[in-house]
Amino acid sequence: MHNRALQFMVFLISVFALPACMGITPVKAWEKDTLGHKHMQIGGNPSIKKINEHVYTSKEASSGGGGIGGGGCGCN
């Protein structure tokens, strides 16, 4: 189980890192119009993210990876 997870993680990191290894053409400031769009923000709509995390963190043993801070709860 753990080996499979490790392999899966290495695979994902490889996929993620592939563009970097191939060389990335720097994106100029005037080319970032799309990247600045509110629907291109990591995590999506912050309020909806909070609402969903509100559910997930109280129903699952896992949490983390979505940023630091925000406070605690008597969830688990």
Binding site: Q41, K50, H54, G67, G70, G71, C75
Partner: peptide, 15 residues
């Protein structure tokens, strides 16, 4: 059991 959220408020982004 109670529920509540642990979400990120210190969210640093490119935009």
């Amino acid at each position: 059991v109670v529920s509540a959220a642990v979400t990120a408020i210190v969210s640093l982004s490119h935009a």
